[in-house]
């Protein structure tokens, strides 16, 4: 019970911290996704101009816009920004305090991640409503929605593990933002956030099949669009990667802590 209280309190504090500078939060978290969507919307509108029913990789204009609208929502539901604070904590020597707190370093950051997700779910609901009433988004059935949300929930933890790992690299690297940006560039491209994977050449989309990339955006989006049959396959593909990342995080944390000099102590 006491542990639960600590978690709730940390989530509450983290929620307050993240919403203190609201303009900054908007520009840093929502703005990039919004502009990304706007650019893609404009581009595909031009590509389909005058011929909305033309099929490109099996999608007409409405389907393509619907796809990119869901990409925006999926990005909100799954992508956190955990590694930034985490690497700063390590670099600035702030983890010394966590080492003596009765609340672990990972617990603190996971609570922060959950707080962030709560905010993102709230923003995603508003975004869905706006996109739906603008006629850009087609809502799925309840069962499809449940399936897609479950997938998003798992992907968000996968992202978190991945970002946690890049954050922990601050034990060795001076600037972990490079890893973060690199990860972002590669996953945005290979996960289908820029283009649906059906547009990719066969050799590339086929070789990505067993990697976690399509599950990060393409599959959840197709699940929201009602085009992905109910199956445990995406969960089972992601699970081993998550287990691997979990143990890698534990290992890197232990190794990194041995190097930690507690700057400023």
């Amino acid at each position: 019970m006491n542990t639960l209280k600590k978690w709730i309190e940390t989530i509450r504090i983290s929620l307050n911290q993240q919403t203190t500078y609201r303009l900054n939060f908007f520009l840093q978290v929502i703005g990039p996704g919004l502009v990304f969507f706007f650019v893609k919307y404009s581009l595909w509108n031009t590509i389909y101009s005058g011929n909305s029913e033309t099929l490109i990789a099996g999608m007409n204009r409405a389907q393509m816009i619907n796809y990119h609208s869901w990409v925006f929502v999926v990005a909100l539901l799954t992508q956190g920004h955990a590694s930034f604070n985490l690497s700063e904590d390590i670099r600035m020597g702030r983890i010394s305090t966590y080492l003596i707190y009765p609340f672990d370093f990972w617990e603190f950051h996971t609570a922060g991640f959950l707080a962030f997700q709560i905010l993102q779910i709230f923003i995603a609901i508003i975004s869905c409503a706006v996109l739906y009433f603008s006629g850009l988004l087609i809502l799925p059935t309840l069962s499809q929605l449940g399936f897609a949300l479950a997938l998003c929930f798992m992907v968000s933890f996968f992202w978190y593990f991945l970002q946690y790992l890049t954050g922990l690299l601050a034990f060795w690297l001076d600037e972990t933002w490079i890893m973060r940006v690199m990860l972002q560039i590669v996953t945005t491209f290979l996960s289908g956030a820029i283009l649906p994977l059906s547009i990719f050449p066969y050799w590339l989309s086929h070789s990505l099949k067993n990697s976690p990339f399509p599950i990060m955006v393409y599959y959840p989006v197709r699940a929201f669009m009602g085009e992905l049959p109910f199956s445990t396959a995406p969960f089972l593909t992601l699970l081993p990667w998550m287990i691997l990342l979990f143990f890698l995080n534990v290992l890197v944390w232990k190794k990194g802590l041995r190097l930690y000099t507690a700057a400023g102590m």
Binding site: N24, L27, L43
Partner: peptide
């Protein structure tokens, strides 16, 4: 005029992203 300036940098990056496509792409 702002306390937290990182948001401005993200806005700057979004501005760049819009400019990465030719003007006829936009309405």
């Amino acid at each position: 005029w702002l306390i937290q300036g990182n948001g401005i940098n993200f806005l700057r990056m979004q501005m760049q992203q819009i400019g990465r496509w030719p003007d006829f792409v936009y309405e």
